[in-house]
Design a protein around this nucleic acid. Structure first.
Lengths: 181, 181
DNA sequence: TCTATTTTGTTCCAATTGGAACAACTTGCA
DNA sequence: TGCAAGTTGTTCCAATTGGAACAAAATAGA
């Protein structure tokens, strides 16, 4: 880009020690952090950037190590917290189309991670439940998200993190009540 | 799901007034907010949920009204703030693969929103610049993100919003320095 | 200098995605 | 009751996606 890049970055010297260098590209140039301050929708940009910084690497690693994709992990995570849900609930929570959820349900049933039983009270829908194997998988994979989350949040003091977390909660609850325009 | 849903939700009655009802499904059930508190990676979940609540509806509307997709808007937004960038810079910032960026560049050049000129100093890369038409489009579309951002952030007082924004900045800068594990 | 390695951007193509249509079922209401 | 409208989950299929291979160019190091 145009800005002259005169950042010496002396720390980079220790980077090339022994690691196979076909790994994924990481850190953008330091200059780009000015975007965080000058863009016209600063909080939105920072939030989406943070989300990408946490979810991107974490879900890549989960896929690599456990063979499940994001939609499948989200399904398992939901069913770890609610004992019975229908597919539409998952679609609502995850903001994914129903057919995407449907695919994830079929794969997770095939793998033995969830069970699906027809709802006697409503013949259209099926009730989904997680199996012990699914719960074990979810617990393990969730650690990846937690680890990455903590790495990103390590920049804050304990008090600031608490304050940040509280503000996030208030916002998330508010967002969950908004209509999609 | 299993929890008995006894929330009366009297507010829903005024919902069906006159609007074509094939609009996209919105608000998940209120019960689901308990996930925000009980999940094992609360900040990560709240952040990704917030990001989806802002970016999802905003980019849907941008696509509908301006005919450009997220990768294309991000490209224009970057070029609105840096007068010259190469495609790899966009890939780094947006965490998208290079071929995705390449496609966006070609479409935006074809539409007259950006210009691409070979770099005399380095024959591999090309320098990208936004055109006045591209800048005008970016300015208009950015309003959609800003509007949605402000709707979500309206739950905070001015002081809390300032504190939240500052914490986000610190975290985003930290995240930009982390390696993708 | 010369050669091996790295970087940039593109093309190819198999896999994934999501909108739309659909069948089965339930709900609302005259 | 009966029928129109809405909901759920699935299938179909065209469009999109991203990994891998590639060519061209730059860089590093002997």
């Amino acid at each position: 880009m145009h800005r002259t890049n005169n950042s010496g970055k002396p720390g980079d010297v220790e980077k090339g020690n022994e690691r196979e260098m076909q790994e994924k590209r990481s850190k953008p140039d330091e200059d780009f952090i000015s975007l965080f301050e000058t863009i016209g929708f600063p909080e939105a940009y920072r939030i989406t950037y943070l989300a990408g910084s946490i979810a991107g690497p974490a879900y890549d690693a989960i896929k690599r190590d456990f063979g499940i994709i994001r939609a499948e992990f989200v399904l398992l995570a939901c069913l770890s917290h609610f004992d019975e849900m229908k597919a539409q609930d998952i679609a609502d929570i995850s903001r994914r189309p129903r057919n995407t959820v449907s695919r994830a349900v079929h794969r997770m049933v095939a793998e033995g991670y969830i069970e699906r039983s027809p709802d006697a009270a409503d013949g259209r829908q099926a009730l989904l439940m997680i199996t012990p194997a699914g719960r074990a998988l979810q617990d393990e994979a969730a650690q990846y998200l937690k680890t990455r989350q903590d790495k990103v949040l390590a920049a804050l003091s304990a008090d600031d993190r608490k304050a940040f977390s509280d503000l996030l909660l208030k916002l998330a609850i508010n967002a969950s009540k908004l209509d999609d325009v």
